[in-house]
Design a protein around this nucleic acid. Structure first.
Lengths: 243, 243
DNA sequence: GAGTGGTCTAGACCACCAT
DNA sequence: TGGTGGTCTAGACCACTCC
């Protein structure tokens, strides 16, 4: 049988490593436990450190590992469910809170301007909030509201105080959440800083269109840590899917 | 001023490169255009190829680039919106179709068993479908239905034919979509093959719980290409957010 | 065969954290 | 001060695609 293949599909080393390490995480490690360091692990499996790191990158994308510089590589627990809408009767749990960070009148990104059908001269409120679950910052949100939607807003306060005023005024408009989308992105430095995360970290970007009197009135762009978050829609899941 | 800092925040080279290349994509390249090859780009920016590739990895995560072995690195268009639920009146567009691939009676993953409150002895239907949008496979779905929910199913057909029979029988139950969640994952080899994608590609994993007569009756696990998909909920967005 | 991205190596140095 | 992960280098070879 001279045509027998030793490598049936030519599986890369790092993918094989990912599988092996993943099984080890299931059977031999507890959540929060620290793995051997990368140099030792690489030596143990007979690969270069860069190859070992490729395998760890995969497991980190899956939310099964956390790596902290100066500390080590830790086994992650299951992701926390973060309600992002759809469930109309959802009352916020006490361990799930918003923390208003800041307000600005800066010009929004071009994408936002286009979605709101505005020119770059139109004044727009931008409110930055951070979302905390069990003490951990899991995500941030930029809310963009055209200023002419809130004519009765007094101009005196600034910063977080003004942000709260904008939020309350916007809530009183009772705009409808018309649509929502989720896609993958990476954390820009501004949100990364709020999320206590390095820039470039994978994030889930949630865009919400608000409608008022048949028109797109406002837009919010939420950014959630992809490593620790599982976004939930509708009611909370009947049974947790923890591993 | 001897304490002046030359590198205020010590920005990594690959992050700076990502920003520079990202701007170049906006201003100097058209969708579908091929970038210079990695060796030339690395030389042009005076970095090692591995560093250049780190920057390209980031841009690929953001869905701004596609890399094809043997071809080159191409500028990606905006992501395609894929409706995944919530919009009750959503009629499927002609360019958005499901293609039933296969049926199996294999034991589901442990996570699924636990969510359905089943033992690993209980027979469960597993239907695999692929979702196509404009000729491109954008995602796959495993639907898990306990066999005792479909007692009237005749046992004769097999493969895709049986899969369709299971789907129709399940639809007639008219189960309620109780909850839904989205998280980040990587493509396992089985779904990667259906999606015409290499294993390890980032994907958005959509889990849907179906409820029937107050009980969790079935579960579906959808897997969508994170590079090309933007998942949409509710109505289609009023204004596309294309760049 | 020539050109592309994908994988892998063996090293080096840096930033961060604990002690 | 020593250990950790993060970054970066300069190469090599492989798999795939097109001509």
């Amino acid at each position: 049988m001279g045509t027998q293949q030793v490598h049936p599909i030519q599986e890369p080393k790092y993918w094989r490593l990912r599988t092996v390490l993943g099984r080890a995480l299931d059977s031999e490690f507890a959540v929060g436990e620290v793995l051997p360091n990368e140099r030792d692990l690489a030596a143990r499996f007979g690969v270069a450190r860069a190859t070992l790191r490729q395998a760890l990158d995969q497991l980190e994308l899956e939310g099964r590992l956390h790596r902290r510089r100066g500390i080590g590589t830790l086994v992650a627990g299951s992701r926390v469910g973060v309600p992002v809408g759809g469930g109309e009767g959802q009352e916020p749990a006490p361990h799930d809170t918003w923390h208003v960070v800041d307000h600005a009148d800066t010009t929004p990104p071009v994408k936002v301007l286009r979605a709101l059908a505005l020119t770059d001269k139109a004044p727009v409120h931008r409110v930055l909030r951070a979302r905390r679950t069990r003490g951990q910052v899991v995500g941030t949100e930029y809310l963009y509201v055209p200023a002419d939607l809130l004519p009765d807003l007094d101009a005196t306060p600034a910063g977080a105080q003004r942000a709260r005023a904008v939020l309350h005024a916007f809530w009183e408009l009772d705009a409808e959440e018309a649509s929502r989308s989720v896609e993958l992105g990476v954390a820009e430095p501004d949100v990364a800083q709020v999320m206590e995360n390095p820039p470039g970290t994978p994030v889930l970007v949630v865009t919400t269109w608000y409608r008022l009197r048949g028109r797109v009135a406002a837009l919010s762009v939420g950014t959630y840590r992809a490593d620790t978050c599982r976004l939930t829609f509708g009611e909370a899941e009947p049974v947790p899917l923890a591993s």
